[in-house]
Amino acid sequence: MTRRERNWLLLAPAAAWFFIMLILPLSFVFVFSFGERGDAGGYVAAFTLEQYANLPARFAAFKNTLILAPLGTAAAMLIAYPLAYQLAVRTDPKWRLILLVLVIVPFWTSILIRSYAWIYILGGQGIPRLLESIGIDDVRLIYTPFAVLIGIVYGYLPLMVFPIYVALDRLDKRLLEASADLGARPMTTFFRITLPNSIPGIATGCMLVFILLMGEFLIPALLGGGKVFFVGNALVDLFLQSRNWAFGSAVAMTLIVVMLVTVTLYMRLIARLNTQRDSDVSLM
């Protein structure tokens, strides 16, 4: 058996699996998005742009996703950064690993269970009841955009802390000392040295969280209570309730395109920030 034949044999099962379970299904979505809905649901072959013309019917889902996903990503980043900084720069190396593991562990337990815990905390018997006892009445938290935002931050915080931690950990700490020795105030050191050096970590974290949020279903389903719904919720509704496969496929295709466009724009922005930083450094 030649080396070439051996490689083909090694790659064939994975190639076949990816083709049947990924490429083929995705082409079905693409083809179906130009089709029509059957009388009893499902799909009837056709070539029409009708489904795409109908997209405004699900405008609210896209609007919610495109507002709450970036907002949730930004909130998670703002909460994660100081923690990652504390862990990477200020913590005794002896404790560093265990504290980092403690941040990541929740991410490896079911997001479903962790999200529904917030039904307790935000629901009528939770925080609103506590507020009532100190005299603040009629606070409604569950099934609001705020509840969804909390769920997002809670669910994806570990994913944000990790890459920022890695970036800050790689940062040569002697740079910080040098900056202080040269008389820079802590704030100056932070904005001139620490923050620019951690941008790749921030970028990775934001990207990971944002991509996952674009397809989110569970958090809005559990904490948004049908009032705050994402594209994911619209997709579940279209495929499992109303069985409108053609329109559902058009929504899914649009989601993928919107995602690709935002991610590409975002990467461009980060690349520009990085080159700017490099030229700043060379000026110094």
Binding site: P25, V29, I211, L212, G215, G232, F239
Partner: peptide, 8 residues
């Protein structure tokens, strides 16, 4: 997204 893999 997982949801798109699911429907596809």
């Amino acid at each position: 997204p997982g949801i798109v893999i699911g429907i596809a």
